[in-house]
């Protein structure tokens, strides 16, 4: 028996640099757009270590208005304080980006309930999708089974036990975490963790990394885990995994 995950011999065919997977971080006016500067590089490293995704560990910082935005269908927006509302032009670009194939992951790094960043994010989302309020993501969503089977929403600080998101025509286009996932992922070049976990330890960090991997793989594969051929096995494992 072979697992789909089992064996790709190597990444020796590392050609086609432009095809490699990258995640740009979004820059904006006001606030602090990069409170966890190593978050994305650390997540990419985890992706490379744990999955077959061919990543390029390259730091990319983009403004929404950057012409190369549409080369990256997954973008990361983070912060720990309030930020200025996006200009109308950028709102329009971002709405277009999300409506037609893009994916935005927003991470609140403040580790506070009802933070200023949270308020700015909610304002941004209501500007982006005035008719589609952000909702809790259900536990049977593909995000929780795109690679790991996840039954707990972790982060460096577990402010909210759930993810929030917006879906358009069956595709989730925006995911928002209040739990400082970036803080849990961040590791320096010497391999040490940059930030301590709040109220948890190694397990909480590992769960945070698993959630980051799953969010990324959802953006890359969408709902394929809901294809009928995959469902029976996944549901059986979930049943066993969730039972005491």
């Amino acid at each position: 028996m072979t697992l789909t995950s089992a064996i790709i011999p190597s990444k020796a065919w590392a050609i086609g640099e432009s095809s490699k997977f990258r995640i740009p971080q979004i820059l904006y006016e006001g606030g602090n757009p990069k409170p966890r500067p190593d978050a994305i590089i650390s997540l990419l490293a985890q992706l490379a270590k744990r999955t077959s995704v061919n990543v390029k560990r390259q730091e990319i910082n983009l403004k929404i208005s950057d012409p190369s935005l549409f080369r990256y269908p997954l973008i990361y927006l983070a912060g720990d304080s309030g930020f200025k509302p996006f200009p109308k032009k950028e709102i329009k670009i971002l709405r277009n980006y999300l409506n037609f194939g893009g994916f935005l992951f927003i991470d609140d790094n403040s580790a506070k309930t009802n933070s200023e960043f949270n308020k700015s994010v909610k304002n941004l989302i209501s500007e982006l999708f005035p008719r589609s309020p952000i909702r809790k993501i259900r536990r049977d969503h593909s995000i929780f089974r795109s690679f790991y089977l996840i039954n707990r929403v972790a982060g460096r600080a577990e402010i909210q036990p759930y993810l929030e998101g917006i879906s358009i025509k069956g595709r989730t286009v925006l995911v928002y975490s209040s739990n400082d996932l970036g803080g849990a992922w961040s590791r320096n070049k010497l391999g040490y963790w940059n930030y301590d976990m709040v109220g948890g330890g190694r397990t909480q960090r590992d769960l945070s990394i698993r959630l980051g991997v799953n969010i990324t793989l959802y953006a890359l594969t969408l709902d394929y885990k809901k294809d009928m051929v995959h469902l029976p096995i996944i549901l059986e494992r979930l049943r066993r995994y969730n039972s005491p």
């Binding site: 995950s5 790709i8 190597s10 999955t51 690679f147 790991y148 885990k225």
Partner: peptide, 20 residues
């Protein structure tokens, strides 16, 4: 194919959604 031979998923098979 979500996983290569050299990948270290840091989890048991039962914690993964991968199927044969």
């Amino acid at each position: 194919i979500l996983r290569s031979l050299s990948d270290d998923v840091a989890a048991s098979t039962s914690e993964l959604s991968l199927i044969p």
